[in-house]
């Protein structure tokens, strides 16, 4: 597999795994969970270093995943008290976990270079170079790992589609029919945590955060059907991956940054030209309405039949 293809495929797999979960995060108003996870994993890296003295990717992913899950469950629990809103819960939990990580480093590991950038945040440009032999073919490790994650997410969302839909739309009703909103909320968040941590290692934090938030938010501007929203999210994610790579190569810029910018561009376009919720469509609608009202008023004062052909 060529390096180009491998990079695009890696980003596309992140877009797929993230795009399946992003819409639910946006609809549940916890879009920023992904950003929280990106900071909250620091203590995981420290703990792995303290126990195993390693910065190898797989153990680090494991340690980070533990704290990512801890982070999302703590957010969920705080929110579940009904005393703290979702956004505030996020802003309370991740700084605390991050701080634990920083203190751990200063206390026990200040002599070695241990931070998020050098341990868990990967650089997508280097993703093709780490390979695993699968059935005799060398395949990029990131592709192998992310395929697994994407597959799990597909299964999760397809199998529990109606449960996710019901608990996101109307949690109280779901409780009366025996579908626990708490359980599904936790499932979703744990899936987000695992997806994010795995993807951090391949493509870095900001691209994961972007792909979890921006395509889903864009899709939310474009459609009134949940399945279409998920499909649109996936499409925008892949467009960002392909166009972003092409753009980055042609102007020699950061690949992750360029992909994020393409996603942002898609959002800006949707914000203006979305057929039902876009700024242009709505201002046109407003103008048309006021004009038709004026015309009716004008017709009303004319004698009967005079303006019938308009």
């Amino acid at each position: 597999m060529s390096d180009n293809l491998s990079i695009i495929l890696t980003a596309g797999l992140v877009a797929t795994a993230a795009g399946l979960l992003g819409p639910f995060l946006v609809l549940r108003r916890v879009a920023l969970t992904s950003d929280a996870v990106s900071h909250a994993v620091l203590p995981g890296i420290v703990v792995i270093w303290l126990i195993f003295h390693t910065r190898a990717p797989l153990p680090v992913i494991g340690g980070a995943a533990v704290f990512a899950i801890l982070c999302v469950l703590a957010i969920d629990a705080l929110k579940g008290t009904n005393l703290v809103r979702g956004d505030a819960a996020i802003a309370l939990v991740f700084p605390a976990l991050f701080s634990v990580g920083v203190l751990g480093i200063t206390r026990y590991a200040s002599d070695i270079h241990l931070d998020l950038d050098s341990t868990i945040y990967g650089e997508i440009a280097f993703s093709p170079f780490e390979t695993l032999p699968i059935a005799g073919v060398e395949i990029a490790r990131s592709i192998v790992l992310l395929s697994g994650v994407a597959l799990v997410n597909i299964l999760l969302v397809v199998l529990l589609w109606k449960e996710f839909k019901a608990t996101t739309f109307d949690p109280e009703f779901s409780r009366t029919i025996g579908i626990s909103p708490k359980l599904l909320s936790r499932l979703l968040l744990v899936a987000v945590a695992i997806t994010a941590v795995t993807a951090f290692e391949s493509v870095g934090a900001i691209l994961v955060v972007t792909l979890l938030i921006v395509p889903a938010t864009t899709a939310y501007l474009l459609t009134d059907r949940l399945w279409l929203m998920v499909a649109t999210t996936l499409a925008i994610g892949w467009i960002s991956a392909v166009a972003g790579y092409w753009g980055a190569v042609s102007v020699d810029a950061s690949i992750a940054g360029a992909m994020g910018l393409v996603a942002a561009l898609c959002f800006a376009i949707a914000l203006f030209v979305s057929p039902s919720y876009g700024l242009i469509a709505r201002s046109l609608q407003r103008r048309r309405r006021s004009r038709s009202v004026q015309r009716e008023l004008a017709l009303a004062v004319k004698p009967q039949g005079a303006g019938a052909d308009t």
Partner: peptide
């Protein structure tokens, strides 16, 4: 779009721009 998503979009877009 609700506040959290709006914040998320601005955060991702600006940071991506910064990296580029």
């Amino acid at each position: 779009i609700r506040p959290d998503a709006a914040i998320g979009v601005v955060l991702s877009s600006f940071f991506s721009l910064g990296i580029v």
